[in-house]
Nucleic acid binder design. Sequence first.
DNA 1: ATTCCACAGGAAGCGACGGCCC
DNA 2: GGGCCGTCGCTTCCTGTGGAAT
Length: 408
Amino acid sequence: MNIFERFLSSSKIFKNREVLWHSYTPDYLPHREEQIEQLATLLSPILKGGNPSNIFIYGKTGTGKTATVRFVTKQLLEICKKLNLNLNVVYLNCEIVDTTFRILAKLAKALGRDIPDTGLSIDQVYSEILKVFEKRENSKVLIVLDEIDKIVKRAEEALYSITRINSEIGTAKVSIIGITNNLKFKESLDARILSSLSEEEIVFPPYNAEQLEDILRQRAEMAFNDGVIECGVIELCAAIAAQEHGDARKALDLLRVSAEIAERLCEDKVKVEHVRMALKKIECDRVSETIKTLPVHSKILLYGIAILSDMYEKFTTGEIYTVYKRLCGKVGLTALTQRRISDLISELDMLGILNSVIISKGRYGRTREIKLETDSKFIKSVLEEDYRLKDLRSYEDEIKKFAKLILE
DNA sequence: ATTCCACAGGAAGCGACGGCCC
DNA sequence: GGGCCGTCGCTTCCTGTGGAAT
């Protein structure tokens, strides 16, 4: 038998797996009718040559914000084309495009200007943009700033610049759609920007378990062959995702990975147990993926944390720092300062690899109490894949003795 | 009520880097 | 090829702080 044949025959489960990717925008978004309607209404002035207000969109991850905006702007572009209106929609993900310069540069590029990645000053880029607007009298630009909370601190001036463009140009007009999953984001904004930015607001509530089930059913119908999903699978995926603040993305991932696991096990049905396996797998993949891409010093630091958590449940910044310094000596690297390590610990915390809480031990100071979130053996094994850290395993006992000495 | 530990975390600034400009 | 420019990772110096110990 040809070794590939089983792959051909094993597609008993999937009919079309693409519909489960999160980049896929379906033709119909269940339980978002209201938001689509609101957004369409707010944008409709464009059709008559008017100026839409700036719009602010709130909602946690996986509540369909991006999908809805993509869906509505796509339709808007289609109709503008028909009506011969000049509209540009610039979609920027602020996690990637995260500085004033990069935002303005992207904007200029989208308007057909050739802007180098570095070298120009912000002002130069800004005036390039203004030039484009002077030429194109009737064009409208819609800027979608996804995950706008990622840049607020570093690029408030970018938002300011954009809102300022309008006052400096004539008929052409820029509108902003800001998308954020940080509900507290508004408070941190400068009052001037806030007032011009959030003229209108749309809130995306999290999906509840039932709604998630609807979404999953809709996609499952397109993605799978009939009858391969056992009863309870969709319900479980929906329930798990509902617990995590109604994240549809998570629900879809869960369903997809469950099916992939079932497929790999050569089963012809997706079962509840596959969902449980998928849940574990997704978490492990996430952690190992983030660990692998960490810079060396973070890796060494994490290695130290893994060793310490074999011995103690929780420990402080200072304790880890001494262990970390020791480990640096072993691998022949100069240790970073404690200040930097403190930042690296925060980063690891935000990545969800460890858990840190600031506590006060009274007379004995104020520090962060650190706890590993994931299995230390798993973390160590991932870290040892790095050739620079391979040798650390052999020093483990020595480090443990050393740690014992300073911790007691 | 005061003291004082062991840090947190802000501010400033440095040097390297990549890449444009003329 | 020297002059800028923005960014990044990092250091140095600094002020701030919750609460047990005194």
